[in-house]
Amino acid sequence: MRVNAIIKRIVQQMLGDKRSTALMFIAPLFVMTLLWLVLDMEEYEPVIALTDVPDSIQEVLEEQDASFSKMTMEEAEVALKRQEIDAQFAWKNQQMNITMEGSDPTATSAVQRVLNEASKQMNPGNLQVDIKFLHGSTDVKLFDNVGPVLIGFFVFFFTFIIGGVSFLRERTQGTLERLLATPLKRWEIVTGYLSGFGIFIILQSIIVAAFSIYVLDIYMAGSFLAVILIAILLAITALSLGTLLSAYAKNEFQMIQFIPIVIVPQVFFAGIFHTESIAWLDAFGKIMPLYYGADALKEVMIRGQQLSDVWGDIGILIGFSVVFILLNIAALKRHRKL
């Protein structure tokens, strides 16, 4: 069959271009690993100078996760200016005076956490709390929370780039026109293209998801198969969107210009940031495929939901793909009306 010929050719091309193939498989793993290293670190330990702090208080403070050193007023002032310490605790007139360095919110909140913990220890019994988790646990760190979104994003991003650029090259090098000078039907071209890349997309989705879950040990409460299926659906959406947009790019550079316009904004609405409070912004996110893919991935990975619980998201992803594929077939009309 003629569709098979296109599939075979794409596989041959991808195997011939080892670097692009490597980009598709290795780049997402590389970036995921870097993000894991950055986001999965232990909490920041602030460096704090103590000036004239009574021993009883110092003892309590030193039990907290921070490093302390004794300094005079003058020493501490210099150290703060040089950013060698994050804060100075000075005891004056029976009162704690705190000077923050203040330029780094992470350090500031770490100092505040130390203070909170210490004051809780000094005045026990203020408020007894016992926290239970409906989903996840205290072990769910930032990386575990944004991880599902990132899996979705990288699958989307790399598929969009590789699918879009290679379809664009068909246009620029004239092979697409050459194909339209054969008896190939327009739907056969689109189907062949999607299936040929589909093979690589499925592999990519499996590798990215498996690496995140089993190697980076991202929090995972649901089924691996469900994650793969959602990732593949998301990738098909990205592929059909990429090939569609390539019709509106004259060269590779113009294709790259779609990244800040079409791809990057999707990250902001995919659940890393909370947009619920601004209604129009939230509504804007709902026109983006990644919003639904990321939501489904989060439901499965963090909340342990089944595929049947996220059928709404899945349905919308399929809907996006179908619309993009039909538009692709229509866009080829520009070249040949039949």
Partner: peptide, 17 residues
């Protein structure tokens, strides 16, 4: 189209193959 052989002005071939 099945009966036509067409050679375009640009070569329109797959350079990786």
């Amino acid at each position: 189209l099945q009966q036509i052989g067409y050679m375009a002005q640009n070569d329109a071939l797959y350079s990786e193959l």
